[in-house]
Simulated scan of single mutants.
Amino acid sequence: MSVTDKLAARIPGIGDRGDRNKDVVAVVKLHGVITPQGSPLSRGTINLAAVESALTRAFGHERLKAVALLINSPGGAPTQSGLVAERIRQLADKKQVPVLAFAEDVAASGGYWLACAADEIFAHRTSLVGSIGVISGGFGFTGLLERFGIERRLHTAGANKSRLDPFSPEKPEDVEWLKKMHSQLHELFVEWVRERRGDRLTDGEDLFTGDVWLGAKAVELGLVDGVGNLREVIAQRYPDAEVAVAEPKKPLLARLGIGSPAAAMLDAVNHRAAWSRFGL
């Protein structure tokens, strides 16, 4: 081996530390809340910018046999859910390899949207799966302003520019507008699930109410293909393959464990609220 080869073998991403003659099953971890912009302190967020490099590495193996998505997400932003799922399909179609999704604690809402990017979905018998719906929430502070004698001054051009302003009284027409937006997003979610799951979905129960089910029931409903975990399924289907994990990189401040306590607290509260909807 030349000096160059020896150096390359020691540099991650250049040298291949595994057996180059072995088939590979790449695993991508998709853990956390789906958000447009991850906090520099956050250890668990999903968006296209955060997972792009991991997806590219996973689908870039020369002897790739399959890609496994290890999903643990309560959902989040619909656009980022769609962007990540579409990117997975683009890479899978280009490489012509199967994609398997494995739900851990929860693959709900946007987390299930991601799972549907796979050709097959597996879940643990205790996994929470589904939540095919749309939700948004906020707070109103009008009473708080009045209590402290604070006057809200808001100037706009455009009749609907200040819709759902948290410091102004809620207007019925704004709520009606929001419900219409929710309905449109819900329709897109349902279309995606029907497109990806096809005739595997059952007709006996309304699957699109936003409800969630445990793994075995999700199999009965056609939301999931089987009860199983990544280790056992990969071992059965690809017993001789090498497993290569491509995990999204954590933000620098999260890796160092430093940052603003206030920002970290707010980030933790938002993420805690998303997980708590599923008792986690």
Rank of each mutant, 00 (worst) to 15 (best):
D240E: 14
R237H: 04
G60S: 04
P12D: 06
R20Q: 13
D19L: 00
K179H: 14
Y112T: 03
E187F: 09
K249W: 08
M265S: 12
G44Y: 08
W192P: 08
G15W: 01
Q184L: 08
G130K: 01
G215H: 06
L69M: 03
V99A: 06
S81M: 07
G82H: 08
N229K: 11
V243L: 10
Q80R: 00
V99L: 05
A241T: 04
L164I: 08
G226K: 00
E195I: 03
A274Y: 02
W177V: 11
L223D: 08
T45H: 12
H186I: 08
L30I: 00
A68V: 00
R89S: 06
E232A: 10
F189I: 11
L280E: 15
I135V: 14
G13A: 04
L114I: 03
V51F: 02
P36Y: 01
I132E: 09
E195H: 11
G140R: 13
T35D: 15
W192I: 01
A54H: 01
A54K: 03
R10L: 15
K161I: 15
P261R: 00
L164Q: 05
K249F: 10
N72A: 08
T156C: 07
E176M: 10
V269A: 13
Y112R: 01
S260Y: 01
L223F: 05
L100Y: 12
P239L: 09
R196V: 04
A9Y: 03
S136Q: 07
G32M: 01
G149K: 01
G44W: 08
A108C: 03
K249G: 14
I34C: 03
V24D: 02
R125S: 14
D203S: 11
K217F: 02
P248I: 04
K22V: 09
G204P: 03
A115D: 05
R125V: 13
G44Q: 11
V106S: 13
R125G: 10
E195T: 10
R152L: 06
L164T: 07
F278L: 15
L252R: 08
H271F: 09
V67L: 05
K171L: 15
G158W: 00
L145Y: 07
G279R: 04
R277A: 15
E187T: 10
H271C: 12
W177I: 07
D225Q: 04
R43Q: 14
I234G: 07
K250N: 12
I11D: 03
H31E: 15
R63L: 11
V129Y: 06
V175S: 12
S109C: 11
S260Q: 05
K180Y: 13
I258C: 05
M181S: 13
E242M: 09
I71P: 01
F141M: 11
W192L: 11
G13K: 02
V3G: 12
L188K: 14
V212I: 14
P239S: 06
Y238G: 05
S53V: 10
G222P: 01
E232N: 13
K95P: 01
